[in-house]
Design a protein around this nucleic acid. Sequence first.
DNA 1: TTGTAAGCGTTATCAC
DNA 2: GTGATAACGCTTACAA
Lengths: 333, 333
Amino acid sequence: MNIYDIAELAGVSIATVSRVVNGSPRVSEKTKRRVLSVMEENNYTPNVFARGLGLDSMQTIGIICPDVADVYMASAVAILERRLKDYGYDCILYCSSHGQEKKEKALELIIKKRIDALVLVGSTYAGRSSECESADYIRRATETIPVFLINGRISGNNIYCVYSKDEEAVHDAVSKLVESGRQRVLFLTDSRSYSAVQKMEGYERALREHGIPIRGELKLHTKNQIHYVRDILLSTRTLKYDSVFATDDVMAVGAVKYANAKGLKIPEELSIIGYNNSEYSVCCEPELTTIDNTVERLCNITIDNMMKLLKGEKVPEEVPVECVLVKRCTTDF
Amino acid sequence: MNIYDIAELAGVSIATVSRVVNGSPRVSEKTKRRVLSVMEENNYTPNVFARGLGLDSMQTIGIICPDVADVYMASAVAILERRLKDYGYDCILYCSSHGQEKKEKALELIIKKRIDALVLVGSTYAGRSSECESADYIRRATETIPVFLINGRISGNNIYCVYSKDEEAVHDAVSKLVESGRQRVLFLTDSRSYSAVQKMEGYERALREHGIPIRGELKLHTKNQIHYVRDILLSTRTLKYDSVFATDDVMAVGAVKYANAKGLKIPEELSIIGYNNSEYSVCCEPELTTIDNTVERLCNITIDNMMKLLKGEKVPEEVPVECVLVKRCTTDF
DNA sequence: TTGTAAGCGTTATCAC
DNA sequence: GTGATAACGCTTACAA
């Protein structure tokens, strides 16, 4: 059942049917009703491919994230999808993994799908500070379509970034740790993404401002897995620290598990701060003090900007967003 | 840059270019090389809409789940996406929410996109036992494309179900609880989906087989939120139970929190079993005994079957899969 | 092995 | 208001 069939059954031309389908005002009420009823009876659905071919758009937005199984990405994707659906856009989802090659491949493939815009979720796409060239594959994509980064920051034409102020948030949190008497803050991270670098800088600035030396051995690169972190901490017996700052709640939970296993009192003997305010933070005992980087806001702003841009309006290229410290039971400030 | 441009530059017809693009063997080595190099130089990408129009397929699979922010769905989607990408298919993702109307709407919309097949993740799409008519909207979809259910079970043509043996798993687990001395098993659930009903039946069968009366007040319908469950349990002081079976880890963690808050010893004074073997199960203290319903297997089997079916092979309409009991510290059997 | 030409189902640009 | 008709860019018989 195509537009020709409907046209014939309604006794009009395909042009008229097309006008009805697209809500053109240049159709008489009478014919419009006739056409609509014929469409209804035969439950006709316009062919999206043909339409896509003509308009060079299928009203589809590409979303790339390293891994939707990660709760942070998953909640971002969930929010993006809902908002986009409301605006009549569909989502095609790519999970790219983390490798540079895989990320490039994912971008290349999704661009071929002639999506209307692309969203990259997660700061892994912002490149590592040490290899600045790695963002070039993203700039290449912007020749075709606008690219939106969630929690990443790349300069360039047709790139729009919404990111949380991680440096500041970590700085403030670590400062509170220090001001409440902690001298040796263990910094746990699993990434060298833009956001991870920001967090590290916030950590270092807080220490510097309080006249505390920055010790390399207190910056631990690990995996974002509960038991892995717990075991690492249990096995490194020479390392001394009175508090832990983790760049993700999962690692913080690992630290909680470590403290519980060693019989350390939280927060008195070990203070712990996590990141993302995920469900994990209320899972462990005691519950985590954590930083909420408000993914929901980041996503909403991104979609707002995207819709404006697609309508031809101008939108800001960078939108920094405040984080929120959520105090629970693993700190005493 | 389209197929005509490439044809002209390579001094061949568009048919030849098309053959090269599609790897047809009916092209001479020489022309193939020439065409390929021209394509390379101009980095030509065939227009997917035009191709979709001709072939009536864009090599795209639809995935619908109630909410990707849920860890279970998210991990399923992650696995499906990876497998499908490997087979050259793209994924369009819809989060339908739970309402009947919303689910119907999501299906209707995604069908219009002319996807090659549809995957429904989660037993909510299998309809509630009490309203059997609710699965009809799914059967309607199968007139157009094959529909694959993950952890759901609907009979019908062109519907393929892969589901875990929840009834059996719960039966076995609850039996162990009873055999280790528990008499009053609190059953926590947040859903009336096919899978939830199966679990309830397993629970009841285990009690029946052990001559324990089934008490309505020990079947608690609640929300899948840690603090909500904890608070409900804390506030219902008249209810007596010596063990908890939860149909999701999140609720089980809520029960752990309740026990910890009340100072009940786990598992001696309160045994707890969760479901899904999610990361939450190793987050709380003590860590949860839980049932792993092997989403990964369910997804892999689904994709295997889908690829076979799309190649024209026959595949089974129902594949039940065993669950695995993961013993940790909230039980003593 | 290669080319010609007819679809595929729309939208958009003209006329009328 | 409505109708022809030409794009849109590809695949695929059918010819050569």
